[in-house]
């Protein structure tokens, strides 16, 4: 093809300019996608706050946070969050006791001891666990765990903080395992080799070198599992019995913050005081999970910097 010099130069310049333009369009789109998540998060916070404004003005945030009784439909109406907050914490605490040892143990097994097809199968099954809807976990709890807890501990009802916590623990496992496993996987192989060459067994290497090296990532996994557990609604609603009384032990029925919102939202007057109070509960929940996730993120970021030498 015959091309005159002026054409070539001009077309080339034109093409570059067009490419630049395309690039800046793509960049704006990507920025927008990134910003969108921040905007959504802020919008949720603002929305919660706006809807909760009435309850904060009429009841007072302090009164709600320190109130020990929850009688939203009684006379007089009492909106104390403590039974709900303690209920949530108790169920989450039980879950923590389940998912910390099991989750870290499973992550160490997958990362340090399993190999080949077994490793792949285990990882896939754990990802599957995350995909099971929470209501299905609730079914399992109702069918299996509630009768078991009732007979095993000789209780009048199997709907307890323990029951909900056990199921929540299992539900949080995929989060804890996959994040911990990533952290263990990121530990340089040179450290394992160094430890083995010093006459440590693989087990000693795992718990003396690899796990401590991955500790911040494992911690982050635990925090995210915690966030998952405290925010879970459906399974606890089905399993904990939902008595809004400050519990004294894990064999009592409890009502969580999430369960309260889900159960009562359908029955309140739109825009009424009770409605607004439920948004305050949501605001508290949002605050708790936000702090937990933020802490996990900060820790993860520190770990990433550590291996980037």
């Amino acid at each position: 093809m015959k091309v005159t010099p002026t054409e070539t130069a001009g077309q080339r310049l034109g093409r570059t300019t067009r490419r630049r333009a395309a690039e800046s369009v793509v960049r704006v789109l990507i920025y927008a996608a990134g910003l969108l998540s921040i905007v959504i998060l802020l919008a949720i916070a603002v929305f919660l706050f706006v809807e909760a404004r009435r309850s904060i003005a009429e009841v007072g945030l302090g009164t709600m946070l320190t109130g020990t009784k929850w009688f939203p439909t009684g006379t007089p109406k009492i909106f104390g969050f403590l039974p709900l907050i303690i209920g949530s914490l108790m169920v989450t605490g039980v879950a923590l006791v389940v998912f910390v040892p099991v989750g870290i143990g499973a992550a160490v097994y997958i990362s340090e001891f399993s190999a080949g097809w077994l490793k792949e199968v285990t990882k896939t099954v754990i990802e599957f666990m995350a995909a099971v809807p929470s209501v299905v976990y609730g079914f399992l709890g109702v069918a299996v765990l509630i009768p078991w807890v009732k007979t095993a501990f000789g209780l009048t009802s199997g709907m307890t903080a323990l029951t909900g916590g056990l199921v929540l623990g299992v539900m949080s496992l995929p989060t804890v395992i996959s994040i911990s496993e990533d952290a263990l996987h990121a530990v340089p192989d040179a450290l394992r080799q160094g430890s083995l060459a010093l006459g440590n067994t693989r087990w000693q290497t795992a718990y003396k070198v690899v796990v401590p090296s991955a500790s911040s990532g494992i911690f982050a996994g635990v925090m995210l599992g915690l966030g998952r557990a405290i925010g879970e609604t459906m399974a606890v609603l089905m399993l904990t019995g939902n008595a809004a009384v400050i519990p004294t032990n894990i064999f009592e029925s409890v009502r969580t913050m999430t369960g309260t919102i889900a159960a009562e939202m359908g029955e309140v007057v739109f825009g009424g005081l009770h409605y607004s109070v439920l948004f305050s509960v949501g605001l508290v929940l949002f605050g708790i999970t936000f702090v937990i996730n933020l802490a996990a993120d900060l820790v993860l970021e520190r770990q990433r910097k550590r291996w980037r030498r």
Partner: peptide
Amino acid sequence: LRMRVGQVFQRPNPFPMSIYDNVAFGPRT
């Protein structure tokens, strides 16, 4: 065997702990 036959690797691979704990690692084992 590896307690009698030590190894130093191509790239330095200190453990993420103090100088003291690094050297004390083998003896503690």
